[in-house]
């Protein structure tokens, strides 16, 4: 019994035990779950990243969810279009640095969604907007948002 009580000692070294946070509750945060983006337009990624020690880096992945394979990480449910087979889906993958020493970082990132590539126009429909954020210690937070990308 003494044995169990005794079990949590020597933890005086300061180690980071907290994940970073992706804050979508700020005013004009974008995109949010169930939002719509448009082909041929540029949108401003607006969210605040925070960490108790130091932020690491982040990545954005936008891929089609025409088969409804993945679920968002969010509470709200979005209405999805019927399942369809992709022909020329849009794909965006990139990783981004965060200035060294940041505990808080507000993104200021313009992302352009081109209307087409060499194979033709991109498919409209349900997409998945995935944000991954790390801190310096290697903790990470993911947010997967259900969005639509349409033509205006």
């Amino acid at each position: 019994m003494i044995f169990v009580v005794n079990s949590c000692t020597n933890n005086t070294n300061e180690i980071d035990e907290q994940k970073p946070n992706i804050d979508l509750t700020i005013q004009d945060a974008f995109p949010l779950n169930c939002d719509t983006l448009f082909f041929g337009e540029t949108f401003n990624l607006k969210m605040i990243f925070t960490d108790n020690v130091e932020l690491g880096s982040f990545s954005i992945d936008i891929h089609n969810n025409f088969d409804h394979h993945s679920h968002s990480t969010e509470v709200t449910e979005c209405s999805l279009d019927p399942i369809k087979i992709p022909v020329n889906p849009f794909l965006f993958i990139n990783d981004f640095e965060i200035p060294l020493g940041s505990k808080e970082y507000q993104t200021n990132l313009e992302i352009n969604i081109p209307p087409a590539n060499s194979y033709g126009d991109f498919d409209e429909g349900d997409y998945h907007f995935f944000i991954s954020l790390t801190d310096k210690s290697g903790w990470s937070t993911q947010k997967g948002l259900s969005i639509k990308i349409l033509r205006r």
């Binding site: 690491g56 992945d61 993958i93 790390t134």
Partner: peptide, 16 residues
């Protein structure tokens, strides 16, 4: 296996 603070696009497809 140690998770780092980096993400990689080219080989990692945007993953940590």
């Amino acid at each position: 296996l140690n998770p780092s603070s980096e993400h990689d696009r080219l080989y990692g497809n945007g993953n940590q």
